[in-house]
Design a protein around this nucleic acid. Structure first.
Lengths: 148, 148
DNA sequence: ATTTAATGTAATTCTTGACATTACATATGT
DNA sequence: ACATATGTAATGTCAAGAATTACATTAAAT
């Protein structure tokens, strides 16, 4: 998939959760409403964020909360929470094993270095982007209005 | 798609074309054989590389050649030749317009900056990786053997 | 000139993966 | 207890990409 539409939805949810803190209980139906996704998709996504230690989700008549300061949450952490295979999901090499052609035999090894460089660049940039900075941008854009 | 499997195939082809220069005529059936792709896919791919000015392809009983020094061909050029939409193909934002929720209304704008930063990091890294460097790595791995 | 082998594309079918949907067992505040 | 959510599995739907087929066009080779 792309730099993961999931990632966009996740950030949407995290900002929502932050803005709603101590005001309304953030449930998966509510987030589904706001993001336009299916509640099950949201639940799976929240589940992944929970496993990564970014949020807590209460069972019963639920509610999601950040369990860390937004300043301590980076885009990299969010992305990694959602993509089990990490950045290799972004990077694909065509299968062409077992051919006599030496290019086919070595292309995988040749591509490894450049693709690692790209992955490192992405990771480095993602680590510098915090949820807090995105929240600041959001609040500036939205003024004082509340999520619903 | 991922950092474009197409991209891997394209690099495969370019290395092949380089190694075969002045030795054998590189045709789409031959590249299809080596890469494991369909000849039509290869032709479309070569066509894109041609439009980008990286190679020439002769009609009739064909043959592809680089029309630039490998030192002057970067991963960025290759990628851009293949992905008309550029790096935005890698980056997706879920559609959630026309909702009353302020998060939904502003999420696109909020994501724009971080995603641009990521795209810039990718572009910068890709510009530093040349076909020549990949060819060097390939030759080191493959020793002196010929493509077929 | 004729033959042969490629390229350049369009049209169609096949596959795959992501997302949506349904269903239901489990958990919890009121 | 009841109402409401979560957690997850199973299934359905759909779109994007790749393969395949087909054919008109081109040019080298004989």
């Amino acid at each position: 998939m792309q730099l993961s539409m999931k990632c966009s939805v996740a950030i949407h949810c995290l900002i929502f959760i932050w803005e709603a803190r101590d005001k309304i209980r953030v449930t998966s139906p509510l987030l589904a409403q706001s993001t336009g996704c299916n509640p099950v998709i949201i639940r799976n996504l929240l589940s992944a964020l929970k496993k990564a230690g970014l949020i807590t989700v209460d069972r019963g008549p639920g509610g999601a909360r950040l369990c860390r300061d937004p300043e301590q949450i980076t885009l990299y952490q969010i992305y990694m929470a959602l993509e089990p295979k990490g950045l290799t999901s972004l990077i694909g090499i065509h299968p062409c094993q077992g051919r006599s052609c030496p290019v086919a035999q070595n292309i995988r090894a040749v591509l490894q270095k450049p693709y690692h460089q790209v992955a490192d660049a992405i990771a480095g940039t993602m680590r510098e982007i915090t949820l807090a900075s995105m929240i600041r941008d959001f609040e500036q854009l939205a003024g004082g209005s509340q999520p619903d």
